[in-house]
């Protein structure tokens, strides 16, 4: 009898433990994902940003040593590199310049991308897969090759200038390559699909009768667009803007291939810290600040969204 009860108890326990394990796994997997792909690399970069540059392999100090223990290790870390970033105006100028370029090119991408997404969503249903394909098609070629192709288009002897000279629109070649204008063109071109796709997804879901209803209630075509189409594609617009803004902020390849020597962007500064100065700690500090600049607006936005949703409940 006693044994039987024990067995029953044991069965309960097992089921309970199994259930707990299952729940734990369910919650744990996304967290492990976040931990492995975001938090751990971030902590490593943060740790390097608190170290000092050294002629060693890898080129910073201190290295973690089990024998000396974690206390001694942490005592060696300091915020010197962050102070360095504050002292030289190069860094905040580069952040500001990147911010300006990223914001401007996000706005430009939105201006170019929205009408395309709108046109796609309004196109006859049988055309849409083809149009979608056309938007995605450039991804089949290497990003680097496509940016190089723009060099051929924008250079002084390039297609664009040849066309302008031929058509008489310009009397001498326009200097576009190696200017910030070329960087804008490059970013808008490269990230356009990231803007189009979420907006298209939002617009395609939209019921056409909503526009008719708005017109029926007294809206002109234009005001129906502002009051109904735009608010309903808000989610897509925001997603698209984030998808463009975040990579544009840290962009390195486009400014270094298309921009001039005077195009100041934080990605280039970071590259120089890392490769020219081989100062990994300062490079890491630059990266940590860049991440904070990117993460703060995302978090604020998320919070705002959450609040909005809660107030609706």
């Amino acid at each position: 009898m006693g044994r039987h009860r024990l067995a029953v108890l044991d069965g309960h326990w097992r089921r309970l433990v199994g259930e707990l394990m299952r729940r734990f796994l369910l919650i744990a997997i996304p967290y492990i994902w976040l931990l492995a792909l975001f938090l751990v690399p971030f902590v490593i970069v943060l740790k390097i940003s608190l170290s000092d540059a050294a002629i060693a392999r890898p080129p910073y100090f201190p290295q973690f040593d089990w024998a000396e223990g974690i206390r001694a290790f942490i005592a060696e870390l300091d915020f010197e590199n962050f102070l360095w970033l504050v002292e030289d105006d190069l860094y905040w100028k580069a952040y500001l310049s990147s911010l300006r370029i990223a914001l401007t090119s996000t706005a430009l991408t939105l201006i170019v991308g929205y009408p395309i997404a709108y046109g796609m969503a309004r196109a006859p249903e049988e055309w849409r897969p083809t149009l979608m394909m056309l938007v995605i098609l450039p991804f089949w070629t290497s990003f680097l090759i496509r940016v190089y192709a723009w060099k051929g288009i924008l250079s002084n002897e390039g297609f664009l200038n040849q066309f302008l000279l031929w058509s008489g629109l310009a009397s001498e070649p326009l200097q576009i390559l190696n200017t910030t204008t070329a960087v804008y063109i490059g970013i808008v071109y490269t990230y356009l699909p990231f803007m189009i796709l979420p907006i298209y997804a939002a617009l395609e879901r939209m019921d056409d009768s909503l526009i008719e209803a708005a017109e029926d209630l007294g809206c002109s075509r234009l005001s129906a667009f502002w009051l109904v189409t735009i608010p309903l594609s808000k989610g897509g617009i925001i997603a698209g803007c984030f998808l463009v803004f975040i990579p544009a902020m840290g962009e390195f390849v486009i400014p270094s291939l298309l921009g001039g020597s005077d195009t100041l962007m934080i990605g280039k500064v970071l590259w120089e810290e890392f490769f020219s100065n081989r100062d990994w700690p300062v490079a890491s500090a630059v990266a940590v600040i860049l991440l904070l600049i990117l993460v703060v607006p995302i978090v604020l936005f998320q919070r705002n969204q959450q609040k909005e949703q809660e107030s609706e409940e």
Binding site: S209, E212, A213, D216, V228, L232
Partner: peptide
């Protein structure tokens, strides 16, 4: 003239 739509067409936002 005003119309009540079959789908109601209420503005979800």
């Amino acid at each position: 003239v005003n119309m009540m739509f079959q789908s109601y067409a209420l503005f979800p936002h």
